[in-house]
Design a protein around this nucleic acid. Structure first.
Lengths: 201, 201
DNA sequence: GTCTATATCCGGATAGAC
DNA sequence: GTCTATCCGGATATAGAC
């Protein structure tokens, strides 16, 4: 058998992931999860201790997914600039926002160390990876040595997370694209060869 | 009489503003508002048609406040770089996030054109102002002419909005500071005189 | 494992007394 | 203008049948 219908537990987790992305933690009720999963109350409380437990499982899975998606781009071929570019330009539905980043605006997530942990870990991991890539770029002469790699990586990540905010405010993905392209132009032309940064025409 | 105790209506609006900032729209109940304002149900439904109406009033007031706070910095003295710097480095409690930007992650706000409008307007206004300042900088030779002012302004705004995400994820304002300093270093040294951008040491 | 029934409290709003 | 009483449905969870 190649295909096995997913378990009820899996459907509960996947429904929760979707709803957390769409509506956040405080905006997501067990009832909505059950309806989407096509399950009854009993199933949920059999597999999970309650809403926080199910949400934690869902958030962890989303965090794993995000890492698995992004890692190949950061590890990919190309110059440091090109790898950052690949991360910034990867396909996204900007209006949906970041399934991890959006949780930072959720009061109940921030109030719980357990729920916040996978969010914190994911973003910290991503920032560390970006910091390493910027550092590489400096060593290779592609980026200016005065750059603080940790600060640049924060600005790169913020272009993405902040880009989502601009896009959702305006109701258009264009604002997200503007943000990442703006940041890319600040990072330099990304051309191979000797560093030529922001030359005046 | 120099001082007049604020009206019940005012207390309701102010309590709502606080709660919207802390917990968002879906996380804020009329009951919580009433408790914080020290008012009863009747007062609220006398002055407002319901939760959406009160929230709209509160959001509009917050939007006005934000403009009034930021405008002097953008209009202030100094070079274009310095005015952007003043905006980016203004005093903030980074862990609280942006009282307007955070609303973009609220599903009920985004679903309502009426509630989203003041959010959209405020962010669009801010971005336009920043775009104008970048344009000025280009004309004065402080910024490279290849910069797309609209994209740079988006990146500036995103550094702030995204910085809040990083700060709240990590539970520390340091990540916000890193984001804005990273962006400032990308914008250039901000020194007077001829443009010297990202010189290698 | 999954279902339905039940319980309790909260969200959001209305009615009417004062 | 403000209060309390009341309403109905939803949020979250437990109990126990199948």
């Amino acid at each position: 058998m190649y295909s096995e219908s997913v378990s009820t537990s899996d459907r509960l987790i996947e429904s929760t992931r979707e709803l957390l992305w769409e509506r956040g933690y405080v905006g997501t009720s067990p009832k909505a999860i059950l309806e989407r999963a096509g399950a009854g109350q009993g199933s949920m409380y059999h597999h999970f201790r309650g809403k926080p437990d199910l949400a934690l499982t869902a958030i962890r899975r989303t965090a794993e997914d995000l890492r698995a998606t992004v890692e190949p781009l950061l590890d990919g071929p190309g110059t440091p600039y090109e790898r950052i570019e690949a991360y910034l330009l990867r396909e996204r539905d900007a209006l949906r926002g970041c399934p991890i980043g959006r949780l930072t605006m959720d009061p109940d997530v921030i109030a719980s160390d357990e729920l916040r942990a996978p969010v914190d870990d994911t973003i910290a991991w991503l920032r560390e990876r970006l910091t390493g890539i910027v550092e590489e770029g400096k060593q290779q002469g592609q980026f200016p040595l005065e750059w603080d790699s940790g600060e640049i990586s924060a600005a790169v990540l913020a272009a993405v997370q902040g880009g989502y905010v601009l896009a959702r405010a305006s109701g258009s993905p264009a604002a997200f694209d503007a943000s990442v392209r703006g940041l890319l132009s600040l990072l330099g032309p990304g051309l191979p060869g000797p560093p030529e940064l922001h030359e005046l025409a």
